[in-house]
Amino acid sequence: MASKLIDEYFREDHLPHIWCAGCGHGILMRDVAQAVHNLGLDKDRVVLVSGIGCSSRAAGYMDFNTMHTTHGRALAFATGVKMARPELEVICIMGDGDASAIGGNHLIHAARRNIGITAIIFNNDIYGMTGGQYSPTTPYGEKGTTAPYGNIDRPFDIVKVAEAAGATYTARGTAYDAVRTTKLIEEGIRHKGFSVIECASICPTYYGRKNKKGSAVDMYRWQKENSVSVEKAKGMTEEELKGKLIVGEISRSEFPELTEQYQKIIEKVQGK
């Protein structure tokens, strides 16, 4: 099955990808392709916009209209694409640095506007491309090359931020659980407003090594053993949920989608 998916949705001339052995991004990229396939979208109508960093390289490998932009700005570029041509299916792939540090403001405001973009965040808790500096999602106390004595910043919960800012669909998946994550992405694309799917990835090369997390296999095992479904989490205490990944659809709400609202303005102004 996988090879068929590659044939259809990837630019094989540009593979193999640059990601390290064991990196979670390849699995997540496949999940995106699978979700698009499951939805039966026309590739010509899909625009994939990415930022800068390891995650952003996905754009180059996938056979859509692809735009590899500047660091953190993927959502801002995507907003222009979607406003200009609402009929296009716009998907953003960002890293944790893109989405929650340099581009944090764009995430908040895309969510606030409820523009019909699907934001998929490959969160590996570290700046991998630049060599392992701590990011806004690096857990408290963990190490990075710029947090040699342990991170003293509080990490962001990207899903909570997005939900609070107005995203009308939020979810969390993991690289380990490809089936569930694919479903969540699919649901996010199908959702009309702004959707955010945070995908816990792994970075065995930097994050794993710096923090003695073992091999890539060990890190996936950790994801498996520490994932708690939204349903199950409801019955657990805060103490019990500490250090766990709550996975599944986290929130869903209603608000008119931005480009549809703007279309109504055009029609009203033009007296149609």
């Binding site: 625009v47 916009v49 735009m67 932009t69 500047t70 700005r73 801002a76 570029f77 995507a78 907003t79 222009g80 694409v81 979607k82 406003m83 200009a84 041509r85 296009l88 403001n105 764009h106 908040i108 405001h109």
Partner: peptide
């Protein structure tokens, strides 16, 4: 947009979409 950087990005995005 939320800032100057984003407005520049959005304008470029729209042009890439043909507008």
């Amino acid at each position: 947009m939320e800032d100057e950087i984003a407005s520049c990005a959005a304008a470029i995005g729209a042009s890439a979409a043909g507008v």
